[in-house]
Amino acid sequence: MVPRHSRKQIVPGFGVTLSVTLFYVSIMLLLPLAALLARASELSFAQIVPIVTSERVLAACKLSLGAAALAAGVNAILGTVLAWVLTRYDFIGRRWLDALIDLPMALPTAVAGIALSALYGDRGWIGAWTSHFGISIAYTRLGIFVALLYVGLPFLVRTLQPVLAEAERTQEEAALTLGASPWQNFRYVVLPQIMPAILTGAAMAFARGVGEYGSVIFIAGNIPKVSEIAPLLIVTKLEQYDYAAATVIAVFLLSLSLVLLLIMQKLQMQSQRYRLKEVQP
């Protein structure tokens, strides 16, 4: 592998970082992944097809991917607002709100699931209130969505914060002095700069959401074809000592999220290229 533009080679460290990265990725990532693929490939193609096309597996994958995408989308918007407020405004309690962002990372997912089901159950603070309007959150698909909002939020905020802090203030000031409205400033000056970070954060939140098990399982209800997520099906297969089928579903789910991640990656590259063109005419 050689850097594509020779100009970039002025920056040192290509060889070292490439070998460290590839070595580590091979041992820590590709090796376990190979074990997974090896186990899945014990089954013939004819055996695999009925597993992944069974109604239940498809329903669960659709639910997992759909809920994760929706949650990532909502977090992309509201998470951006949060990151913006945290980096740009000063207000009482800002530090506390900032510190709170890491909570979903540190709190074990099972604890989060328990806390969420306590909050959103029909007796919980929020659940009791929504049940007045006939809306149940815990033990429905809505519960899965809420759990994934929680799990995904830090990815957005933490990816955006450093970029927002770095973003060129001078350009914004220029735009504002020239009479741009705050919205125009955000839309034409800030957003192009932070778009790659938003997409990265959303992609990570999405990926995490697809595989999430611990927090969802407590709040989902787990009814087949209604609120049963794909990772639960994997566990179910394992309980039947059917390792091969479990790995097949795992690989299937993984490939679906990989394809989506690659698309996100492409989008991010494009948004960056667009931005570069704009900034350096």
Partner: peptide, 21 residues
């Protein structure tokens, strides 16, 4: 009639007792 299928016995007990399901 089953609204929640927990993954284990203790989980089910908690859903019933603590969450009021």
């Amino acid at each position: 009639h089953v609204k929640v299928l927990d993954s284990g016995a203790r989980g089910a007990t908690t859903s019933f007792a603590e969450r009021g399901v």
